[in-house]
């Protein structure tokens, strides 16, 4: 930019239809879900809504990719994207924080309190006198209402392997970045492929672990607070891994088309940030849900 005071180079797009399409898709999805839960509608509206959302994302991101390749974004636009992605990831961290908070609260307070800890003698005495606090909590206070788990999920089988897989994928995505920076498009695609494969491999093993938990351990979503926190935390994480791996797949296809240069590849970086975030959340899960 020759002039330091011109705002002309900051790309402000014309009107856009993608947001309203996204709003319609989102609304249809959630209204469909609520009606499905009440048994008033079939599941079809949910899938139509999701299809609209996917269409919106494809179109919206497609527009952005086209504009980016046409050189319409200057450094300042790039910086807006960076701030945007960074704080989006922070908002995701806070979403997980709510569920980690629930886990810590259950482990530190609600379960011990039900057994009379702190000032809760009367609670234990009058509600469920036979209840004994433990973690992982297998025997819940009111067994009739829940399907109690037979065993807790161990840490050092599949979860440890999954930890290794995700940590390795963090390495491969960095190797991909290095390849990008030295203009080595072949290895960029190879390392991205490895990362995507590790990501979906993780999801596959997680699904296998769930089936083991349901069938062999009877550890279910309705097994009390242990099952609740276990599935909601690992489930949302698994969903994020799926999203991240899908994003990586898109980036791999774009890399194969030669979209990225060492100077201009924020889309790659944004997805790499997201991938590392997913990785870090998993470490928290491995330590607090599986191990300790």
């Amino acid at each position: 930019m020759s002039s330091t005071t011109s705002n002309e180079d900051y790309y402000v797009p014309h009107g856009t239809y993608w947001p309203i399409i996204g709003s319609i898709g989102l609304s249809l999805t959630v209204i469909g879900t609520a009606n499905f839960l009440h048994g008033t509608w079939s599941a079809t509206p949910i899938f139509v809504g999701l299809a609209i959302i996917i269409f919106m994302m494809y179109g919206w991101f497609g527009t952005v990719v086209t504009e980016s390749l046409a050189g319409m974004y200057n450094k300042q636009v790039d910086m807006s994207f960076r701030w945007g992605m960074g704080w989006f990831i922070f908002s995701e961290v806070m979403f997980f924080a709510a569920f980690f908070g629930a886990l810590f609260y259950a482990r530190a307070y609600s379960v011990p309190w039900l057994d009379g800890a702190s000032n809760n003698d009367a609670t234990a005495q009058y509600l469920w006198p036979d209840f004994e606090a433990a973690w992982p909590l297998l025997s819940v206070p009111l067994a009739d209402k829940f399907s109690e788990a037979k065993h807790a999920m161990g840490a050092w089988g599949l979860p440890a392997i999954n930890t290794l897989i995700l940590l390795t994928s963090g390495l491969t995505v960095t190797l991909a970045h290095w390849a990008l920076k030295r203009r080595d498009n072949v290895w960029l695609v190879y390392w991205l492929f490895a990362t995507v494969a590790l990501g979906f491999g993780f999801v596959f093993l997680q699904a296998y672990e769930y089936s083991h938990a349901y069938q062999d351990l009877n550890l279910r979503l309705d097994s009390g607070i242990y099952g609740s926190t276990f599935y909601m935390l690992t489930g949302f994480h698994g969903f994020h891994v799926t999203m991240g791996a899908t994003m990586l797949l898109v980036i791999m296809i774009r890399a194969a088309k030669g979209h990225f240069t060492p100077e201009n590849h924020f889309a790659f970086e944004a997805v790499a940030w997201y991938w590392h975030f997913v990785d870090v959340v998993w470490l928290g899960l491995f330590i607090f849900v599986y191990w300790l």
Binding site: A98, A102, A106, S110, V140, I225, S228
Partner: peptide, 24 residues
């Protein structure tokens, strides 16, 4: 997160806010 826990407590048998399952 809070309303999501409400939703799963209501429909999917979780017990975040139900003392009978160890929640509160």
């Amino acid at each position: 997160g809070a309303v999501t826990m409400m939703l799963t407590d209501r429909h999917f048998g979780t017990s975040f806010f139900d003392a009978a399952g160890g929640g509160d």
